[in-house]
Amino acid sequence: MIELKGVDREFIVGDQTVHALQDVNLTIARGEYLSIMGPSGSGKSTLLNVIGLLDRPTRGTYKLDNQEVTSLSDDELAVTRQNKIGFIFQFFQLLPRLTAQENVELPMLLAGIDPRERSEHARAVLASLDILDRASHRPDQLSGGQQQRVAIARATVMRPGVILADEPTGNLDRHSSREVVAILEQLNQQGMSLVIVTHDPEIGQRAARRIRMVDGCIERER
């Protein structure tokens, strides 16, 4: 479903060119579980952003569900992102003024889905992640692990084909980390592709497919 061929991503900083990604070739099938590891600055986040359509490759092709997406307009990319991609961030990125349920409803609100349907759906997802009792709490009333679960609910509420998690446990203690990873793996078993960028070898080892990046290149894969 995801097919990158010869992808480069260059940043021009002053008169220098930073090669954040160099000739990346990567195919991810539907329902795959993939971890990306590597030293800081090796291009892991950049790769995830390209896959998530937040960034465009400088060179190369990217097919998502057999559709060439490098040539899509910004608005078309936004719609594709809305329906096919779920992001999970290290710092959760919940809106502090909204309740947990409102945060989960946000992607559906942007998509213009009926409020009643939205509410039912959000509550169902919160229930499946076992935090329905916190639905009306605001983020600052939740622990880190709970916040990340709300963020996962938000990322999956539109039923995307792929979940992209950039260091999802980077801000959590061991216990919460395990919980969050378990939830993500559970979602993966339900059929969503899962890509985790992590510095934690223990978590990285769990994936069926493990990629190591160095200097913008995929160094090896197991």
Partner: peptide, 16 residues
């Protein structure tokens, strides 16, 4: 700013 970035990641177009 972070909120705007999030909205974009969640699929909000420039227009929205």
């Amino acid at each position: 700013t972070a909120e705007i970035g999030l909205l974009k990641a969640l699929g909000a177009s420039q227009h929205k």
